[in-house]
Design a protein around this nucleic acid. Sequence first.
DNA 1: ATGACAATCAGAGATTGA
Length: 259
Amino acid sequence: MRIATFNINGVKARFETLLTWLEEAKPDVALLQEIKSVDEGFPREPIEALGYQVETHGQKSFNGVAILSKLPLEDVVRGLPGDDSDEQARWIEATVVGKKALRLCGLYLPNGNPAPGPKYDYKLGWMARLEARAQELMAAEEPFLMGGDYNVIPQDEDAAKPESWQQDALAMPATRQAFRRLLALGFTEAFRAQTQGPEHYSFWDYQAGAWQRNNGIRIDHFLLSPECADMMVKCEIEAAMRGREKPSDHVPVWLELDN
DNA sequence: ATGACAATCAGAGATTGA
């Protein structure tokens, strides 16, 4: 099974890009972030026409996540548990039923800038809730993964210019510490399990020719439970998407599982 | 230190993003 995570930066603005990508790349499952659309505004029919089941968790203008799957999805959960007052749409879960059941979690972790401040507090609080939910899922000892835009630069090698991110919410010590705490629950960070070294990025800013200068950061990740990591075949970043017409500022990250 | 770029909502320019 080939699963992709892709922050599309607006499903309306990215509709043609998304549809072409689905037709050509043919993911079995796509975890989408920043759909920036309410559920009723999501272009469900043309995507269903390509053979996908579409499950969305949207909101007006900002955020919003979705799961597209060629195999049936069951037990959809919308919203990250732990704070009923949180109205931001950043989390969706579903079980994809193939030969084995696999729990999928799609996430759009808060940016957190400026830091320090209330937005950074929200980010760290969200990460604490994420850890709690991950711990619950781990306890089930069944295969699951969490994929999405983590807004975390895990290490200096994950940025072309790490010095310029030292004071940024994506790379500050407390952010990296919270990410390490998550990993310490027993996750495999899929990309780094197979590929080492610098110059592997999933985001390039629209500004200042970041793509042309390869001034990128790696912030889109797959975390695999032990039972899921056992099924991993490969994990790759589709960087070429950043050079196409009307690109998102993020590119897809691919995970292939033998399941 | 600031802005560069893009999307959204709205119908200009502020807000958000990373």
